Simulated assay, not measured.
Amino acid sequence: MLATGYQALAARPASFHALLTGGATAYAHVPFLVFAAPFIIVRNTVRRERFENNNPIGVAVATMIAGFWSLMSGTAVIVLLRAFELV
């Protein structure tokens, strides 16, 4: 939802290029990218696979990394909500 909302507001897809700008802008994008990164990784992998004939092992590894990242970021949110006794 974050990456799609970003794309609707910014009229361009979310990417890791914001980190290359440096300064306060790069630091401001870090919290967003922590949660949007799994979507960006899978989107980039699917795009690359569509235009290039890569091996399926690379796609599987990228999908596992994105899935694990997504699970861990969700776990961090639940831990924070429990710490503030909101759940």
Rank of each mutant, 00 (worst) to 15 (best):
N53A: 14
P38I: 04
V59I: 15
W69F: 12
L33T: 01
R47E: 12
E52M: 08
R50G: 04
A36L: 00
R47V: 06
A60L: 15
F68R: 10
A62D: 12
P38Q: 04
A62F: 05
R47G: 12
I65Q: 04
G58R: 11
I41S: 02
N55C: 09
V42M: 10
R43M: 06
S70P: 02
I57N: 05
R48Q: 07
F51N: 10
I57Y: 08
F39Y: 10
M64K: 09
L33M: 01
V59M: 10
W69E: 04
V61T: 11
R47K: 15
I41R: 03
V46M: 13
I57D: 04
T45N: 03
P38E: 02
I65F: 09
F39K: 05
I41G: 02
F68N: 09
T63D: 03
N53D: 10
A37V: 00
F68S: 13
E49F: 06
I65L: 15
A36Q: 00
N53F: 04
V34Y: 00
I40E: 00
L33D: 00
V46T: 11
A37N: 02
A62I: 05
I57R: 11
N54W: 06
V34C: 03
F35Q: 02
L33F: 01
T63K: 09
N44F: 04
G58I: 06
E52L: 11
G58C: 07
I41M: 08
P38D: 03
I57K: 08
A66H: 07
V61K: 08
G67R: 09
A66M: 09
N55Q: 12
A37Y: 02
I57V: 14
N44K: 10
T45A: 13
A66Y: 04
R47L: 12
V34A: 05
A36N: 03
I65V: 14
E49G: 06
T63V: 15
E49V: 08
P56A: 14
L33E: 00
S70N: 10
I65Y: 04
R43T: 05
I65P: 01
I57L: 15
F35L: 07
S70V: 06
F51Y: 13
R43K: 13
R43E: 05
E49N: 12
V61D: 03
A66V: 10
R47T: 08
P56E: 12
T63F: 15
N44D: 14
A36P: 02
L33G: 00
I40H: 00
A37M: 07
N53G: 11
I41F: 00
I40G: 03
I40R: 03
V42K: 07
R50L: 12
I40S: 02
I41L: 13
A66G: 11
W69L: 14
M64I: 15
P38A: 06
S70A: 15
W69Q: 07
A62V: 06
V61P: 01
R47C: 05
A37K: 01
I41E: 01
R43W: 02
V34Q: 02
F39W: 08
F51D: 08
G67W: 05
N55I: 09
I57A: 13
T63A: 15
A37I: 03
E49K: 12
P56M: 14
I57F: 11
P56Q: 14
N54H: 12
F39M: 05
A66S: 14
W69N: 04
M64Y: 07
F51L: 13
F35D: 00
T63P: 01
N55K: 13
N44M: 12
F51P: 01
P56N: 14
